[in-house]
Amino acid sequence: MVATGTETQSLKQRFRNKVRVDLVTGCWMWTASVDNHGYGQINVAGAPVKAHRVSWMLFVGPIPDGLTLDHLCRVVRCVSPDHLDPVTRSENTSRQIAAIGHPNALKTECTNGHGFSETNTRYASRGRGRVCRICRAEANKRYRQGRRAA
């Protein structure tokens, strides 16, 4: 998201108009459009962007490269920059597990024994968990060989 000073002011005003502060929790609750997972979204330059990411960029600054924003309050509609923490995807996943508990997330290796390290782990789309890169590469190789044989 790159915006000039005037565009940023306009975006800040649009953003503020879509937030309601919960006086009990301190969460800035997103009152406008949400995606299929319940995260707030706002159009920036004609494309939908997650509202909590826009909040961080407007009120804190750029999200550090390679990091994602973790909702410390565990409320996905919350866009308060005070409730967000830039962390690695791995740390974000670990925190989610600690908060909600999920047996697969506690596993340290795939079903074939390959370790879930930062370099060997890919995160599947739409929150569907982790994928072992070694196993995925082997499956792709078998698929290509089968296609050639056919």
Rank of each mutant, 00 (worst) to 15 (best):
M1G: 13
T4I: 02
T6H: 15
T6G: 08
S10M: 11
K12M: 13
K12D: 04
K12R: 15
R14P: 02
R14V: 07
F15R: 00
V21S: 04
D22R: 10
D22I: 15
L23G: 11
W28T: 04
W30F: 11
W30I: 02
T31L: 14
T31V: 08
A32Y: 10
S33E: 14
N36T: 13
H37Q: 09
G38E: 01
G40T: 06
G40E: 10
Q41G: 04
N43T: 00
V44G: 03
A45E: 06
G46N: 00
A47T: 13
A47F: 03
A47M: 10
V49N: 07
K50V: 11
A51W: 04
H52I: 05
M57S: 15
V60S: 06
L67W: 06
L67K: 14
T68P: 03
L69V: 07
D70N: 13
V75T: 15
C78P: 04
V79H: 02
S80A: 15
R89A: 11
N92R: 08
T93I: 09
T93D: 01
S94R: 06
Q96E: 01
I97Y: 03
P103K: 13
N104S: 13
A105S: 15
T108Y: 02
E109G: 06
T111I: 10
F116H: 13
E118N: 12
A124D: 07
I134E: 12
C135D: 02
R136P: 00
E138H: 09
N140P: 00
